[in-house]
Design a protein around this nucleic acid. Structure first.
Lengths: 279, 279
DNA sequence: AGACCTTACGGCCGGCGTAACAATA
DNA sequence: TATTGTTACGCCGGCCGTAAGGTCT
């Protein structure tokens, strides 16, 4: 079986065309490369080169060998990477969620229950979450509906209720309750990465413009320095300081209240049993 | 990139379960194997083993690594074989024919025109010939019709006419010409490996039985020692001694005369140009 | 003369074996 | 005590570099 250094050197010779050039790229003396190519040819047992007096070229066999060598080298090079990736995935719990709120509760809980594991979270849409759960991208996902499939284990993990967050000067700031439609058409400040809330507000308020902020600090500054309406939720208020100088008004549409469900694959039941028990 | 000897040794350890056993199978001292497994683990950078005081087992990472190693080793092992096969196929002209007769003319011609090449012949049916021409199994084929496809180069390479070969005592031995139907129902001696003639005679003489002989010598002996009818062709007579004590009577059916066409792929036109010119 | 390949010779590093030790059953 | 795995030490083969030589443009 040809050794790797021979295959590497053949691949380099194919790439660079001359022994001298290839040897230089390999940080190898040119005579060494010459010898080794001869050795490889001998080992395979068929001519790989056409030899003029001072020129060396691959023949068809040589080109084939070099291509196969490249493939094999790539594969071997991939082994370490694959194993490291596998190890990392074994050591991390990747949690995909449809909205930020569940992260606030689950991350501390996971860290406590699985102190040796890395916790990785990602917010994305629910079709992607389900796909990612199956292909191993996520070990746990949080949806805002309960999946029916029997291959899943799931349990409720909290609710979240949406409020309008209005400046006191707003024309509707004194109302006790509002509908999405009441403010449809006004411009809203909105954080990015809020999961399904983003799509929902767009759907319920098709005439509004949403001014997306990527940075939390910037968002807070603009909220307190402007009269633009925005949103808040009960869960956010439970975890973070609620902004002063803002009136929060419940939204009556049923879509403004979400229930979250934590889901994992049945085959991972054992690993996450204590987590589900704790919820 | 892990060296092959490390991958081989890991694969052996996976196969045999203990270092001692694996080392023995590898013709290697056990301490060497111990060291090398540690080295591989270090190189990949993740734990591959669970270590008790005097026991060593693969963990999940280790099993994955060993599987990937086996795959890579198989691939590298296949390189030399593939290249040798490729070289051999480059050095042989494989000729597939639909009947034996074309071989008698073409084999000497090929040997003469391509003295460095091995000539390999095979008799099979025409659908297989065409398939084999495309997948590289055959470089040349002989059909008994001219293919229309523009991807082929083809030219006529002879005809062959079938005769009944009857003992003088046969009731029809004095006829000048006969049809297949005239002898339909009688038992015939027939050589095996006669290509499309086999199917044709069965089709034209559905009530006859054909007594197939695999050995040429046996066939000749039985022919001269029996009164069983058989066949002969003009081409066979041109190349071999025709049997004495046999009357040969032309067959009038048009299927009894075949024209042969030598075919190669257009892309091999250059290689076989002189062959087609010689025909 | 410069670029390229091959052959010859000697050094050195890395993988191996032997030996010695520790731990289990 | 027999089996298994780890550590320590020295040998040796194989791969490499340097040097020298040949061929082509």
């Amino acid at each position: 079986m040809p050794e790797l250094y021979l295959l590497r050197q053949l691949a380099a010779f194919k790439e660079y065309g001359t022994l001298s050039e290839a040897a230089e790229r390999l940080y190898l003396s040119q005579p060494a490369l010459s010898r080794n190519m001869k050795k490889l040819e001998e080992e395979i047992g068929v001519p790989l080169f056409v030899r003029s007096r001072n020129k060396l070229e691959l023949n068809e066999n040589g080109r084939l060998t070099a291509e196969l060598a490249e493939k094999a080298l790539t594969e071997i090079d991939g082994i370490a990477k694959q194993v490291r990736d596998f190890e990392r995935s074994r050591r991390t719990i990747s949690l995909g969620v449809c909205a930020p709120a569940p992260i606030w509760k689950l991350t501390p809980l996971l860290s406590q229950l699985y102190p040796t594991m890395m916790i990785q979270t990602e917010i994305t849409e629910e079709t992607q979450l389900l796909e990612g759960l199956h292909n191993g991208q996520y070990k746990l996902i949080v949806l805002h509906f309960q999946p029916s499939d029997r291959n899943y284990i799931s349990c409720a993990c909290g609710t979240e209720k949406l409020f309008f967050s209005l400046p006191p000067s707003h024309r509707l700031a004194k109302e006790k309750e509002l509908y999405f439609s009441d403010l449809d058409g006004e411009s809203f400040l909105l954080m990015s990465e809020i999961g399904f809330w983003h799509d929902m507000t767009i759907r319920k308020m098709p005439h509004s413009r949403f001014l997306i902020q990527n940075d939390r600090f910037t968002f807070d500054e603009i909220v307190s320095a402007s009269v633009l309406p925005t949103f808040n939720t009960d869960t956010a208020n439970a975890f973070f300081a609620s902004p002063s100088d803002r009136i929060e008004i419940p939204i009556r549409d049923e879509e403004a209240e979400a229930s979250y469900f934590l889901v994992c694959l049945k085959k991972n039941e054992e690993q996450f049993g204590q987590l589900f028990a704790a919820l």
